[in-house]
Simulated assay, not measured.
Amino acid sequence: MTVMPTEPHPATDALIDRWNVLLERCGATAAPEPYCRALLARWAEPQRRYHTTDHLLAVLDEVDLLAAHAQDPDAVRLAAWFHDAVYRPDRSENEERSARLAIRALGEAGLSAALIAEVVRLVRLTVDHHPAPGDRNGEVLCDADLAVLGRSPEAYARYTAAVRAEYAFVPEDVFRRERAAVLRQLLALPALYRTPAAHARYDGPARTNLAAELAELSKPVP
C-alpha cells in the first residue's frame, strides 16, 4: 500500500531537487519528479519506523561523503533511493521487490540498460551487505547503509528502538534471539566497513555499540 504522509517531510523539496538533478544527469528522457514523489510516498508508509525518509536522507548524505571511492557514484545514489523502497517488516523479499521497482521505474524514465542493471545489482546487494573485493560501488552503498551502526550511543539507541518498533509483532524472546544472532555475525566480521573513510570513522564506534546492545539482549527478559 502506498500512502502519502499527512505532513510532508521537512526535506521533501530538497530531496526532490536532488532526485531531479540526478535523473537529468543520468540521461532521463521522462520528467523525473513524478517518480520521486512516488518513491517518497513509499518511504513514508505507516509501517516504517526506521526505514523512513530520514534513513533515505542519511544514506544519500553518506553516499555523497564516500562518493570519491565509487566507480559510478550516481549509480550508487540511485540504488540508495531504491534500496528500501519496498519495505514490509513481515516479509523477506523486500530487496528483490525493490530491485524490480527500480527496473520498472528507471526503465520508464529512460535510463540506459547498463545503468539500470548496475542499480539493480546494488539494490540486491543490500540483502547481505557483502560486496565482493574490488566492488567499489557496492562498498560505498553498503557502508552508507550501515553507517548508523557507528553513530553516537544516543543515535544508536534511537536506531535500535525504531527497529524494535518495526518488529513489534515479534515476541520479545524471539526478537532478542534473532537480533543477537545478527549482532554476533556482524561482530565476527574482520571489517564492518570496506571504504577507508567509513572504516576509520565508524568501525570502532560500531563495534562498541553492537557489543553493548548484545550485552543488553543477553539479560533476562523483564
Rank of each mutant, 00 (worst) to 15 (best):
V123D: 11
R176M: 00
R158C: 05
L65R: 15
E154P: 06
V170M: 05
N20G: 06
D145H: 11
D173F: 02
R207K: 02
A165W: 03
L22M: 09
R18E: 11
R176V: 01
E33F: 00
E118P: 04
D61P: 08
P34H: 02
A165I: 04
R207W: 01
H69K: 03
D61N: 15
V86L: 09
P196R: 02
R194H: 10
L183A: 01
E166D: 06
A212M: 02
A75C: 14
P34G: 00
T12L: 14
L23T: 05
L217D: 11
V119N: 10
E139H: 11
Y35T: 10
V86C: 15
R136P: 03
L23D: 04
T29C: 01
A109M: 12
R104Q: 02
R184D: 10
L60F: 07
L217G: 12
D128P: 04
A161F: 06
A80Y: 08
F169K: 03
P190D: 03
R88Q: 10
R124F: 04
E7V: 15
D74L: 03
R184C: 03
Y50E: 05
R37I: 09
Y193A: 00
L192G: 13
Q47N: 08
L214K: 03
P196G: 05
R179F: 01
E118K: 12
R151D: 00
E154K: 14
T208M: 09
L78M: 01
V63A: 07
P153N: 11
A105V: 01
E24C: 10
A132P: 06
A165G: 09
E178N: 14
